[in-house]
Design a protein around this nucleic acid. Structure first.
Lengths: 154, 154
DNA sequence: ATAATTGCAAACATTTTGCATCGCC
DNA sequence: GGCGATGCAAAATGTTTGCAATTAT
């Protein structure tokens, strides 16, 4: 399914995508891509916009949303909506990982899970060809579990 | 994790939840619950509102959103945001199932997957206690696959 | 009785759109 | 040069909020 990509591979993939779609290779599009690659993990639109401003590269919201949509179609970026959190984006092509979301504090954790990856890679669906998947696990993180325990004993 | 519930079990669970939270058992809340139970599967806010209107039971948007939030906290309802689709709700407590989303036509399919359920039930996370999970598989449905094939040969 | 809940409409946050301008191909 | 892309501001969407009226406890 998705494979590890280095910086250049992302850029190349995006160029190819734009070629196929006969779309222009504008500096904005690549500035945004560069910026996304600099994020270690998840980011919000606001964080992305801020990050671009810091680089004294201004891009309008319209273009940001536009470009992110393109990148999602190009399978370079994924969009996540977790309960109670602002919309999160992340670059695709990293090691596949599951998302743990604490329903008490909203903390988000990524976990790599080789067994799960192996399981999913082997998994076939009838009348459907899988492209990529997302696993969201909701529950309680240790910090909140401790807090809840304390409250009870009070 | 989640178990099969019949109609009464949902109502009872909701009553218990309201008791614990010291919240009122208003007719609106139970009308909404009844309405949700009538849906076989996923539904949108609009569909829920319409369904309530048809029963000549008017409930304001504010109350709808409010109550759905309560039910999510009570683990009676789940909220899904799929790429390119309006926000979907579904009653929890059904047989666990994965979601297949076609990235071409947006069609949504639920699949029961015993192997996956077994896998997840056995799965333990470090420093995190899982409560429930959601698996979203994005890809291409057979109908779209056929269409795409035709286009290529043209 | 009284505090929680409701409905309404206004406010809000986020995303999309229309249009004039700009710049890649 | 021409069409696609951009920026801006305005609009649309989906959801939340404030407040007065209502109602479950």
């Amino acid at each position: 399914m998705s494979d590890l990509l280095n910086r250049d591979a992302y850029v190349k993939r995006f160029e190819q995508f734009l070629d196929v779609k006969k779309m222009r290779k504008t500096p904005e599009r690549f500035a945004i891509l560069r910026c996304i690659l600099a994020f270690q993990s998840h980011f919000t639109i606001e964080q992305l916009a801020q990050s671009l401003e810091l680089q004294t590269y201004h891009v309008s919201r319209a273009t940001l949303y536009n470009t992110l949509q393109l990148m999602i179609e190009a399978r370079l970026v994924r969009r996540h909506v977790f309960e109670g959190l602002p919309v999160q984006y992340e670059k695709a092509g990293n090691t596949p990982h599951s998302h743990l979301i604490c329903t008490h504090c909203g903390k988000l954790k990524e976990v790599r899970d080789n067994d799960f990856i192996a399981f999913m890679n082997a998994r076939k669906f009838t009348a459907f060809t899988a492209d990529f998947y997302m696993l969201y696990v909701y529950g309680t993180c240790n910090t909140c579990a401790r807090k809840l325990k304390k409250q009870k004993t009070k």
